[in-house]
């Protein structure tokens, strides 16, 4: 059976890609794509194969099995010119100036000298490094140098931006700046893929998530789809001796008595897949429950992540 032709509108696509190191699969049959204009979060614990997958997608590493496509073609210097890549292991020429290095990366991506220098000046000014335009990389702090490398990644206004652990090593202020930068690039129309350990960033920024563990894909879908993997819960407090458990049982909900205090009785309701907190609230009201407080608990992405790759994390710790 022939696999379908790659879509030239899809900035990145991995098809059943595998990579083996010393006979062990670092990435095993991983497939995912990053549709145009999307922000894709690429999540996984350390050693899950995120960087290897991204390096295969960019053609830095050749897959041992499967295929990688950029804009519908195998990675080549032409389509790589449309990509901005911030690798996990970062570094710059220490003796070059911030302006020089951003311009250099721009020119390697096809920009002319004048335009690249103008753009470097503009970016440095805009992202708080205006005073460091002539500074050498060796004279910058680690965070500043990382910021310069991020700017060097984006200097040529790439259509596809791949950021491997971009938030690591940045202080909260710079993390916020980077989030802003990602949003701006997204608004410009760029497709963005980033890997991260910090679920909050993914939750705030991503349209879609791919989660991998031990080299295998564990999840591929929207944030809502990810959240729905873990059922919601709700806390309800009632006045007097009202038996909420009995009242909700009639509607098919399972509740559990928690405690009684001066505010009344407190109940915890575990919802099944597909059940939503407002349905419980409606059932309780319909049953005439004297509700004093209602607190729905939606699962967090961290919980989803742990439920999907938690065992890998434990294995990693054991190892």
């Amino acid at each position: 059976m022939n696999s379908p032709l790659p879509d030239t509108q899809t900035p990145l696509e991995l098809r059943c890609a595998s990579k083996f190191f010393k006979g062990k699969a670092a990435v095993n049959q991983v497939s995912f794509s990053a549709p145009k204009g999307e922000i894709l979060g690429f999540l996984g614990p350390n050693g899950a194969g995120k960087s290897t997958s991204l390096r295969m997608a960019l053609g830095v590493l050749a897959p041992d099995d499967g295929e990688a496509y950029l804009f519908g073609e195998k990675p080549n210097l032409k389509n790589l010119h449309r990509v901005g890549f911030l690798p996990e292991e970062r570094g710059l020429y220490r003796k070059m100036t911030t302006r020089g290095i951003i311009s250099y990366y721009g020119r390697l991506k096809g920009m002319d000298r004048k335009t690249s220098l103008l753009r470097a000046d503009e970016m440095l000014e805009r992202y708080g490094l205006g005073k460091q335009i002539k500074s050498k990389i060796s004279d910058l702090s680690k965070g500043m140098a990382q910021k310069v490398q991020i700017l060097a990644t984006l200097v040529h206004k790439p259509d596809l931006i791949i950021l491997d652990e971009p938030f690591s090593g940045l202080d909260p202020v710079n993390q916020h700046d980077l989030e802003m930068l990602i949003r701006e690039e997204h608004e410009r129309g760029a497709t963005i893929i980033f890997s991260t350990h910090v679920m909050e960033h993914a939750e705030r920024l991503c349209d879609r998530l791919v989660i991998i563990g031990k080299g295998e894909k564990r999840f591929d879908g929207t944030i809502d789809e990810a959240m729905s993997l873990i059922p919601e819960t709700a806390d309800i407090s009632t006045e007097g001796d009202f038996d909420l458990h009995a009242a909700l049982e009639k509607s098919g909900f399972t509740s559990e008595y928690d405690k009684t205090d001066e505010n009344g009785k407190h109940w915890r309701i575990d919802l099944s897949h597909g059940e939503r907190a407002q349905d419980v609230l409606r059932a309780a009201i319909n049953a005439g429950a004297p509700i004093t407080s209602f607190t729905p608990h939606r699962a967090k992405l961290r919980d989803v992540f742990v439920s999907l790759v938690g065992e890998d994390l434990n294995d990693e710790e054991t190892a």
Binding site: G91, Y93, Y105
Partner: peptide, 17 residues
């Protein structure tokens, strides 16, 4: 050695063969 120790290769190799 500077390029290797400063982890510059990955950035370069997505721009030049």
């Amino acid at each position: 050695i500077e390029e290797r120790s400063n982890k510059i290769f990955d950035s370069l190799l997505t721009s030049v063969s």
